[in-house]
Amino acid sequence: MKCKEAKNLIILELYGELEESEKARLHSHLEQCRDCSGESALTKKVFAVLDEVEPAAVPSTDWDRTWDRVQAGIAGLPARRRPERASGWRWAFAGTGLVLVLVAGIFIGRYALSPSPEPIAVSAAVVAPAPNGIRPAFAAHLEDLKPILLDYAHYVPGEKSGRKISVDEEVLRGLILQNILLKRKLVEKDPAAADLLDDLDLILKEITNRGTQNSQAPARIRDLIEQRGVLFKMEIMKNL
């Protein structure tokens, strides 16, 4: 066996990737070759150092936030990423720009603008009217869902009062279908409404699949409602 081959086999042996026959060949070479024997000891020590300093645990991460980003990416929206670290010259450039804007603002405020006798009126934003008759149907759908979602949102685990959340299967089936149809109608006209319907779709699926059989299901559904801010979004959207 040549020393170069032995050097490689030493590594494979440490990783447990060597067959018995190769192992025997290697050891017989190491017994005869002082250089390779030293190389073997050195490699073992390097592995010991690597194992010693390697952090045992991978840090924890926010899985729900990552999932939200994955969903955004799947939907074709730009998946949000952490802001890139700006290098020193970028900070310097940004700082200079900020100072220039401030100086220009002071200059314009002091010399270029005359004091205005009347406060400037702010024109009210005009909310565009609903595109067609789908809006009332959407608002009615949200109203239908609200009591069910409120039941789950107020669920307290281990509550002694014996209040049990029950949803009629027929009603649920109707709501799911209604949700799908509305989503299909609104997906192009109103992406925000379609997003809300997406969240509702997920929650309705959870209710359908987990029901009230599983003792942890209501808590999971409550958390989902809370995480997605569904009730808040519903309040806002029904008035638009």
Binding site: L42, K45, V46, V49
Partner: peptide, 24 residues
């Protein structure tokens, strides 16, 4: 690839393993 990677690491870490403290 593995052999090359280990060799690079060995070169970098040689001075630590030849010092005391990491006897196998």
């Amino acid at each position: 690839h593995l052999f090359r990677a280990v060799e690079s690491l060995k070169k970098r870490l040689r001075r630590f393993v030849t010092e005391d403290g990491y006897e196998v």
